[in-house]
């Protein structure tokens, strides 16, 4: 087949768009591995030194971020799965309004939500100073990202009939929830959890307002290093962040693909 000029024109356009989005990421990765960015890669050569330096200085932010992400996922599952179930079951004007309300912290600037939290709970010193304060912010912010996919799966699975079947076999309400509702929503729960972990790891707005010097997360540390340290250090920090987040994104994509094909007939 003979390709026309139009085809090559479109190809060029696509490649340009890709380059526009990817080159900054690659530049950042490269900067993190370059001995001296101002002399250039060729003149100064590559090194892992910056990565080690970042790890030495900021390892605790990485651990805090991971701990926050895991705790956030656990918290969101414990609140979000029963909430999604209740919303699916009710399915009336009130439940739809509540669903909209839940998305509010996502639509609102993170700074505003954080300010609201500070105004309400700021005076409880011990709580204010602990990482749990940031956790509350993350849970509020990420909740809809779990509730939405879980609701979508629940609505598709004919849960009311499955629950009636379980009840006819002797299962009480709690048994039905754990043996029928949860297992048959697991694809949605998994997708939601990965989304929540990803969002929690990268969250900056809220966290920046809520953190203390003792509770710095990875993105907050990243901002610090951009502001105060060498460009190579900040870039090496980005490399570490990408190492954490990219596998999660790939897993998320795989699960979404699985969901889109439809679980089971």
């Amino acid at each position: 087949m003979k390709r026309t000029a139009g085809f090559y024109g479109r190809l060029l356009f696509v490649l340009l768009v890709c380059a526009f989005m990817l080159v900054p990421v690659l530049m950042s990765l490269l900067a993190g591995l370059t001995r001296n960015y101002f002399q250039g890669v060729v003149a100064s050569g590559l090194t892992l030194g910056w990565l080690l330096q970042v790890w030495a200085a900021y390892a605790d932010t990485v651990w805090l971020s991971l701990r926050l992400a895991v705790a956030c996922a656990v918290g969101v599952v414990m609140i979000g799965v029963p909430a999604a179930y209740a919303l699916v079951r009710m399915n009336n004007r009130f439940s739809r309004a509540f669903e909209e309300l839940m998305v509010l912290p996502v639509a609102m600037p993170g700074l505003a939500s954080a300010l609201a939290l500070l105004l309400t709970y700021g005076q409880y010193g011990a709580f204010r100073g602990s990482w749990l304060f940031i956790l509350v912010g993350h849970v509020i912010f990420t909740l809809p990202f779990l509730v939405r996919p879980v609701m979508a799966v629940m609505q598709r699975q004919h849960l009311p009939v499955l629950e009636e079947a379980a009840a006819s076999l002797g299962a009480g309400p709690l048994q039905r929830f754990f043996t029928v509702v949860v297992p048959n929503s697991r694809a949605g729960i998994l997708a939601g959890v990965l989304m929540v972990v990803t969002l929690s790891l990268g969250e900056f707005n809220l966290t920046w307002m809520l953190h203390t010097p003792m509770t710095k997360t990875l993105p907050v540390g990243l901002a610090d290093s951009y502001a105060s340290a060498r460009l190579e250090v900040a870039s090496a920090y980005t490399v570490i962040f990408l190492l954490l987040i990219v596998p999660l994104l790939i897993a998320l994509q795989a699960i979404n693909h699985h969901l889109a094909r439809g679980d089971r007939p």
Partner: peptide
Amino acid sequence: LPIERRDVGMVFQNYALFPN
């Protein structure tokens, strides 16, 4: 009594088998 305490066996129209 709710259904779970009536000791009935039920076959549903679309069978409602547990997919998990």
